[in-house]
């Protein structure tokens, strides 16, 4: 029962964040890149106030998988490193915390571009 509720929470919160994004797209016709950046910055600012971490504690992947979770992780890393190492940490902490995700995206992007071809779309 405990595990099931974790999944339900992740599904509901993750779905809600995406739905919010879709509502913004529907009413403002913003492009993909802009939507990603808006959610990223929203997550980063909320983390600055310490709010987003609480959402992650509650919803797990439901809050960490959306791009706002990425923004939150950047800020969380920067704040943690700034606390430990001062101004030097403020500059290194963010990227260090997200290095895994970015590296995997870059490397897999590279590999996929070697192994695959783009396809013409039928619809």
């Amino acid at each position: 029962m405990e595990t099931l509720s974790v999944f339900v929470k992740a599904f509901l919160v993750g779905g809600a964040i995406c739905t919010l994004g879709q509502i913004i797209i529907n009413f403002t016709h913003l492009t993909n890149g802009k939507i990603l950046v808006i959610f990223l910055i929203a997550g980063a600012i909320l983390e600055g106030f310490g709010v987003y971490s609480k959402l992650i504690d509650f919803a797990g992947a439901g809050a960490s998988v959306p791009i706002s979770g990425f923004g939150s992780a950047l800020v969380k890393g920067a704040l943690k490193a700034a606390k430990e190492k001062g101004i030097y940490g403020a500059f290194t902490g963010g990227l260090a915390a997200c290095a895994t995700g970015i590296s995997i995206a870059i490397v897999s992007g590279y590999l996929v571009s070697v192994l695959f071809r783009p396809r013409t779309k039928a619809k």
Partner: peptide, 18 residues
């Protein structure tokens, strides 16, 4: 040509957009 115009004027072919 769909695939050349799509890249030049819009998005990469494999980008998932509504």
């Amino acid at each position: 040509h769909f695939s050349t115009a799509e890249r030049q004027y819009r998005y990469p072919l494999e980008l998932g957009v509504l």
